[in-house]
Write a protein that binds this DNA or RNA. Structure first.
Length: 935
RNA sequence: GCGGCAUUGGCGGAAUUGGUAGACGCGCUAGACUUAGGAUCUAGUUCUUAACGGAGUGAAGGUUCGAUUCCUUUAUGCCGCACCA
């Protein structure tokens, strides 16, 4: 009986689809469970073997939960709006809609072959109007909401207006435009002139998490700082809750830590410093209130609004020049070139405790976006202030006993205070507390918590994204009525981005809003009385991916994002799988988005993802051939390149890993691979050409991309699934190495052969023991996401049962259920064979039975429960150790209590001889079947 | 600089509660079958030693009858944040 995996897999994939096996209902008496994969960007390159790693793991878990009687929601969709999809379209010169749809189709084809238990009826695409209608809808809600800091939650902005109408006499005197301008400071989605990361190459602005070291994460293009009028989301209002929420979700420590880091909570104090000769003081933020006696100068950020107030006539020219210099430097230059720069403003501040006059400087090492954009500088205890003080020759006053500040500052928050008036003699931590209390009581300042988390810039000067449901009347934005959503993305003649920042939607002919008739009309009709211009920017990639998990619950609903009853049933994602690269982007934004919808009562859970697992990245494993330097086309096998004859004379060249098997080069395939290798000659070892290898990023240029389709064609989906899990722990990064896939495939073949001739006999005790050991192990593995250790367990059980010549239907049928989450196709086929065998028996007894019955799918089976009784052995061997060495072995009945074992050891004649008659202090019996004698 | 994770044979990795380190797979070695093998089966495979033994989980200490596992120091690698006052 051959294991014909391609027939089996094709047959069952078709059968499951026809039977609707994986359709999920929103109404069920079963307990619910929601397993979600981070949905992919459908890139043009298609899936490589790294992509399905997490999908396979979540599929195994979903199938396991399903077999345990849960109603499991396990959907898949496509994040199809945004930069990557559009960049691909531009590179290939096609319309993004066309390429996106083609790419999605290709992804679906590839995914279907692997046999996932997705409910494809729930598929979503973020670029589909029926989906982005709800992205736009959420934006409208954010526009009409503000964050109530007293209640710590979002509220309809109408409440704020009502409050002002009642309590703020000034409000009622404002014009419509003034009112709108004031409201803009409170809306969760707001329009503002902000400093943004502008990427000329991509022709659009980027969020902070899309920029790394002054380069765009996607494409690696330079990014500069620009002030632009942009839509923003008030994510920073949620900083405290985003931080606290981490404590009640089951995520890995490293991911929580990354988010804590990104949110950047910092407890300190705001203090007011008077400016000499002026009435109004200015405010600084510090975490080291205790160091106030060591302040020798003040520093303002170049963009600080205080700058204009403190610059004196004499210094004006110099300051102007400095500000101009700072403005012209890109973010990248500033990071690369960290030399100390700055300029004196001419003004002095007054130290509120010592009344000392201290000079005020401007320097770009102080950031305008954090705190108040102004600091008090304490060079003795802050390394940045120290560098500045050295450069400008400013005094350095040490405040901690024994701190040597002649070479470097003493930044540690420890030691005893000195030179510090009322703080002298205190420990630093106590001094901080005392100073906070002092400044609060005297009104010099107040305790303040600052967050590093910034608001998210939400506009993109791009075509391929959700249009904003916004039109402009007298320069102020207004939302489209909710019933007019979705606002469809218009056709344009040219969708390419521009380096100057003019959005491509400016090219759209039909792009104006008729307010009275509530419809989109030609922009030539704009009269600013009835017909108004629509917003030209589109939303960023993270817009569509922030609440997509809610839409899967109820994706056909055109009345609401999700029906409250349905949301009440599924609640939240129980298990979320994806890469850790989304830690500071998607996973912050979707938590924010979710909390916002929660505040407004649209959904029932405060946190979207209860448990989150990061699967590791699959790296590429490249292969090399070694060309003899100087020769045209001679290649040396890897084992010979370090021999005296060839050492230092070879040059490694990447070779396509798909023509290499177990590091052995397929020579004919190599010659046919590229014309230049047609006449290649080889120096072999043992008749083979062995390739070298290295772990690198999986990419086309390294010729190390492996397509899952090829693996499925060669070995079958079940082998691919098992092997991806077998590679190593789910959460670790590891290279894709095809050496070894044969071993896993062999296991399936051997397992399959056990079903050749089945018997209905009663299983033996030994067979049951093997099986129940396996049940226990597999159950533990899946519950603990230790999928890689299951495959060896399957192999061991298989070989044990084979050694026992086991062909019992009862055993093998249960084995099939255990294997079903990992290798569903072969398990289903084997399960059917078992049922047929049972039926044949029944048929012999009662022919009417078989006609009325239908074969049950392995998907509807019940997960077996381990019966510990089967695991018990009649006797157990205890190696007895003394001084760490095994001296002898005793054999006792299984389940003998420890004390009994101890007694037996104590009375054992060998013990006495071994111990020269001396009495042992104690005998330790441990579960590992070891007895240890302690003298 | 701060924070997180890792380090075990030729390779990927196992050891789940501190209890026989190296499961399982690959590779390799030998044998069987075979016209043939990139097929299948059997046995062996941490290092060292002729053997008895001895050593051994990045390194150095510690706790323990007993440490891959816990603690301290340290080295290396990967990841995240980084002029955040």
């Amino acid at each position: 009986m051959d294991y014909n995996f391609s027939d089996i897999e094709r047959k069952w994939q078709a059968a499951w689809e026809e039977a609707g096996t994986y359709k999920v209902s929103n109404e069920s008496d079963k307990p619910h469970f929601y397993v979600l994969d981070m949905f992919p960007y459908p890139s043009g390159a298609g899936l490589h073997v790294g992509h399905p790693l997490g999908y396979i793991a979540s599929d195994i878990y979903s199938r396991y939960k399903r077999l345990n009687g849960f109603n499991v929601l396990h959907p898949m969709g496509f994040d199809s709006y945004g930069l990557p999809a559009e960049q691909y379209a531009i590179q290939t010169g096609q319309h993004p809609e066309k390429t996106t749809m083609e790419n999605i189709e290709r992804y679906i084809q590839q995914l279907r072959k692997i046999g996932f238990c997705y409910d494809w009826d729930r598929e979503i695409k973020t670029c589909d109007p029926s989906f982005y209608q709800w992205t736009q809808w959420a934006f409208v809600q954010m526009f009409h909401s503000y964050y109530d800091t007293a209640l710590q939650k979002a509220q309809p902005i109408s409440k704020l207006i009502a409050k002002w109408e009642a309590n703020d006499p000034k409000w009622n005197t404002l014009s419509e435009e003034e009112k709108q301008a004031r409201l803009m400071n409170y809306r969760i989605a707001y329009l503002a002139d902000t400093k943004v990361n502008w990427c000329p190459e991509l022709g659009c602005v980027l969020a902070n998490d899309e920029v790394s070291e002054g380069l765009s994460v996607r494409g690696g293009y330079p990014v500069e700082q620009r002030v632009m009028r942009q839509w923003c989301l008030r994510v920073s209002a949620y900083a405290g809750r985003l931080l606290d929420g981490l404590n009640k979700i089951d995520w890995t420590d490293s991911l929580k830590e990354t988010q804590r880091n990104w949110i950047g909570r910092s407890e300190g104090a705001e203090m007011q410093f008077a400016i000499k000769g002026q009435d109004e003081p200015f405010t600084i933020f510090t975490t080291r209130a205790d160091t106030i006696y060591g302040v020798t100068f003040m520093v303002l950020a170049p963009e600080s609004e205080y700058v204009a107030r403190v610059v004196t006539e004499e210094q004006k020219e110099e300051v102007e020049a400095y500000l101009q210099m700072v403005k012209n430097r890109t973010e990248r230059e500033r990071i690369a070139d960290r030399k100390v720069t700055g300029v004196f403003t001419g003004s002095y501040a007054i130290n509120p405790l010592t009344n000392a006059e201290i000079p005020i400087y401007i320097s770009d090492y102080v950031l305008s976006g954090y705190g108040t954009g102004a600091i008090m500088a304490v060079p003795a205890h802050d390394s940045r202030d120290y560098a500045f003080a050295k450069h400008f020759n400013l005094p350095i006053v040490p405040l901690i006993e024994g701190a040597d500040v002649s070479e470097a500052s003493f930044d540690a928050k420890e030691g005893i205070m000195m030179n510090s008036g009322i703080l002298n003699g205190l420990e630093v931590q106590d001094a901080i507390a005392k100073m906070k209390e002092y400044i609060t009581n005297t009104g010099i300042g107040r305790v303040k918590v600052n967050y590093r988390l910034r608001d998210a810039v939400f506009s993109r000067q791009r075509y391929w994204g959700e249009p904003f449901p916004i039109y402009y009347k007298n320069g102020m934005p207004y939302t489209l009525p909710e019933e007019c959503l979705p606002l469809l993305l218009p056709e344009v003649t040219d969708f390419k981005p521009t380096a100057t920042g003019e959005p491509p939607l400016g090219n759209a002919e039909q792009w104006a809003w008729d307010e009275a008739n509530k419809c989109v009309v030609s922009k030539s009709l704009i009269d600013s009385e009835h017909i108004f211009p629509l917003e030209l920017c589109t939303m960023p990639g993270f817009a569509g991916s922030s609440a997509y998990y809610l839409r899967y619950m109820d994706n056909h609903n055109n009345q609401a994002l999700v029906d409250p009853k349905v949301n009440q049933y599924w609640k939240q994602v129980d298990l979320y799988l994806g890469g850790s690269e989304h830690a500071t982007g998607h996973l912050i934004y979707s938590r924010f988005w979710n909390k916002f919808l929660y505040d407004l009562g649209y959904i029932c859970e405060d946190e979207p993802f209860r448990k989150l697992i990061n699967q590791g990245m699959i790296q590429g494993r490249s292969n090399f051939v070694y060309r003899l330097v100087g020769s045209q086309n001679t290649y040396i096998s890897h084992g010979l390149i370090n021999t005296p004859e060839y050492e230092g004379k070879v040059q490694p060249i990447h070779v396509n890993v798909n023509i290499v098997s177990n590091d052995v080069l397929d020579i004919e395939a190599f010659k046919a691979w590229m014309p230049e290798y047609k006449d290649a000659e080889f120096v072999l070892e043992n008749g083979k050409y062995i390739c070298g290898w290295a772990v690198e990023k999986m990419s086309k240029s390294m010729f190390n991309v492996v397509n899952p389709d090829d693996v499925v064609a060669k070995y079958g989906a079940d082998t691919l699934r098992l092997y991806e899990m077998f590679l190593g722990p789910l959460e670790m990064s590891k290279p894709w190495d095809t050496n070894g896939i044969d071993g896993v495939h062999r296991f399936l073949r051997k397992w399959w052969n056990m079903f050749e001739s089945l018997s209905n006999d009663e299983p033996t005790a030994e067979e049951l023991r093997s099986l129940h050991k396996l049940i226990k192990k597999i159950t533990w593995d899946i519950e603990n996401f230790s999928f890689n250790t299951s495959i060896p367990a399957f192999m061991i059980a298989q070989s044990e049962l084979q050694a026992l010549k086991c062909n019992k239907v009862t055993i093998l049928k249960t084995f099939a259920i255990l294997l079903a989450p990992y290798a569903p196709h072969i398990a289903e086929e084997a399960y059917q064979l078992c049922q047929l065998r049972i039926m044949n028996e029944e048929l012999r007894n009662d022919e009417s039975k078989i006609q009325n019955s239908k074969l049950e799918s392995v998907n509807d089976a019940l997960w077996p429960i381990c019966n510990e009784a089967y695991l018990v052995e009649s006797t157990q061997k205890y190696p007895v150790q003394f001084n760490g060495k095994v001296r002898f072995t005793i054999e006792v009945a299984k389940d003998t209590p420890r004390e009994e074992v101890e007694k037996i050891v104590m009375s054992h004649e060998l013990t006495a001889k071994q111990l020269n008659g001396a009495a042992p202090k104690k005998v330790i019996v441990v579960p590992g079947r070891i007895v240890n004698i302690v003298m």
